[in-house]
Design a protein around this nucleic acid. Structure first.
Lengths: 142, 142
DNA sequence: TTCGATGCAAAATTTTTGCAGCTTA
DNA sequence: TAAGCTGCAAAAATTTTGCATCGAA
């Protein structure tokens, strides 16, 4: 079962319907590599000939986030970015404050310490958001 | 020199003026314990008789963030929260997805690994944002 | 046939900005 | 007096919602 089947299975299980708009938005949202805003996704879909509304893009992205297929990131204030995570490795982000470049990284030790910290405070950890801001090598040498 | 002197010194150094509105906003912004939105700060100031505009609250908070006296947090989408950090220990946050409780924590080992990670990718780390989301003990037992 | 879904436009939120008048240095 | 500041209201920018219509099951 591929990712798309999995998502549509999830939606069906919740009594939601398989429509053209939904299908193309899910497709675009999962297929995109990297991060995108709701508006960027809308533009991309329209550019490839899909006829969907902005409202449906927001509504469908919300469903995908709820289902855990897509995650939101707030790299910059007031602009939610989305990123597909289904079948991909969990990772966090380094953001360059100079050029805006975004680098993904994984660090199991940090993950472990987060778990430990949550437990120590009586929390059952569900998810986390870790962003490191700084200057990238290119900006530093410029 | 107390915190307020420090901030006003910083502002003076940048050729900015000491006005009534600025003084009361700086005061409210630094004195608040915990996190607040721009609007909450505005309400608090007005409740205590200060006559300031929403625009000035936003403008002054931006100055304080630039100066490193206040930091922004995005616990929930689309709502920037501010927190004074002058003279306080750096810390990160655990957020309960049930009741919204916010718990502060410090973990030097995580800090160290963040530095190391940034360096490994050629970044000079400037700041970071770490939020752990989960269920707190109270919500778990309810 | 019944609900859920869609598109559109209006509304809601949060933050920023233009501007005329006021204040500080 | 010059350069900042302020408040207000309008503008921006992003996301949500009401509603009539459409379409999937």
């Amino acid at each position: 079962m591929d990712d798309f089947e999995k998502v549509h299975g999830y939606l069906r299980g919740r009594g939601l319907r398989r429509t053209d708009a939904r299908r193309s938005i899910v497709d675009g949202a999962l297929r995109a590599d990297g991060h995108y805003t709701a508006d960027e996704l809308l533009e991309k879909l329209r550019a490839s000939g899909e006829r969907v509304s902005r409202a449906s893009v927001y509504r469908t992205l919300a469903l995908l986030v709820e289902g855990g297929f897509v995650e939101t990131r707030e790299f910059r204030r007031g602009q939610t970015m989305f990123e597909p995570v289904l079948g991909r490795h969990h990772h966090d982000h380094l953001i360059c404050t100079g050029c805006g470049a975004i680098v993904e990284f994984e660090n199991d030790e940090i993950e472990r310490l987060q778990e430990e910290t949550a437990r120590k405070h009586g929390f059952r950890l569900e998810r986390h958001s870790l962003r490191l801001y700084g200057r990238c090598a290119t900006c530093l040498s410029a």
